[in-house]
């Protein structure tokens, strides 16, 4: 990649849960400032674990980075507490939205601003979130638990914006949402990236969608990165087409029977 130092560099990390289960086995990736980077992979590949390793949320789950390093803006962060990592500018939007159900929409946004020191600028930022998500403004006094799934996802992203992060980690923002909503959310992610200059590391199962918005992509399997490249390169890769985009080489969908005993072996599995 280019010579400029990356915003985030994950170097060869190993993550172990409960002292025995090895989830990440020497994973490395880089995120350049200002980009949207997609991290793709099947269930259980370790995508969420990677994000949690970066944001420091592994500790309460008995997970540990046992080897390698994570550097953010040139400084190692893999030994810091989650709160310190948030202060430094990394904010994770967790899978499944995780809004504070009994708090109002506005209180959720305030909770997102917890680490901010410039308290006077917060009302302005709440308005700014409402310009991205006008729907939230109408619902500002409503308890977050009663919002629809899409509204909750908007709230989760808006809440992250309140911390003014340099790097936003998004874990499956499309999970459980209607296709039209998913499109809307992804458009907003792109707008946030362009207008706020927020760098985004995006974990997605929906590879097609993620590659459409991303500047760069990584594909994970069994706790390692197996492929990386620009979206164009990844989309042209025959393995990616087959296993992640669901297309055969001639470009049509495969029938279920063929999928069941596929002929192609993943080339990266040696």
């Amino acid at each position: 990649m280019n010579a400029q130092a990356p915003l985030l560099a994950v170097n060869n990390i190993e993550v172990i849960y409960n002292e025995v289960i090895l989830v990440l086995k020497g994973l490395s990736l880089e995120v350049q400032a200002g980009q949207i980077v997609a991290l793709l992979g099947a269930n259980g590949a370790g995508k969420t674990t990677t994000l949690k390793a970066i944001s420091g949320l592994l500790k309460p789950e008995d997970g540990k980075v046992t080897d390698g390093s994570i550097e953010f803006m040139g400084e190692p962060i893999h030994r810091l507490d989650a709160e310190e990592i948030v202060r430094r500018g990394i904010f994770q939007v967790m899978e499944g939205r995780r809004v504070f159900e009994h708090l109002s929409v506005e209180e959720n946004l305030l909770a997102g601003a917890y680490t901010r020191r410039d308290r006077h600028a917060i009302p302005q930022d709440i308005e700014r979130v409402y310009t991205y998500f006008p729907r939230l403004k109408e619902l500002r006094r409503r308890r977050a638990g009663y919002l629809s799934g899409g509204e909750q996802q908007m709230l989760a992203i808006g809440r992250a914006l309140m911390a003014r992060p340099r790097l936003m980690l998004l874990d499956e923002p499309s999970l459980g949402l209607a296709p039209l909503l998913v499109k809307e959310i992804f458009d907003i992610i792109r707008r946030i990236n362009a207008q706020e200059g927020t760098t985004v590391l995006l974990v997605e199962q929906n590879a097609r969608l993620a590659l459409r918005v991303a500047d760069y992509g990584y594909i994970m399997e069994n706790g390692r990165i197996v492929l990386e490249g620009t979206p164009e390169v990844l989309q042209d890769n025959p393995d990616v087409k087959e296993f992640y985009l669901g297309l055969t080489e001639v470009g049509k969908r495969k029938s279920y029977r063929e999928v069941k005993h596929y002929k192609r072996r993943k080339r990266w599995l040696s």
Binding site: D81, A82, E83, M94, F100, L103, R119
Partner: peptide, 23 residues
């Protein structure tokens, strides 16, 4: 207050509160 909202946030979802940088 900020701490009051943080307290209620923790009561709702401890891990999510942690991801906000709430100690």
């Amino acid at each position: 207050t900020r701490e009051g909202i943080a307290m209620r946030a923790i009561a709702d979802d401890q891990q999510a509160a942690l991801s906000m940088g709430i100690s």
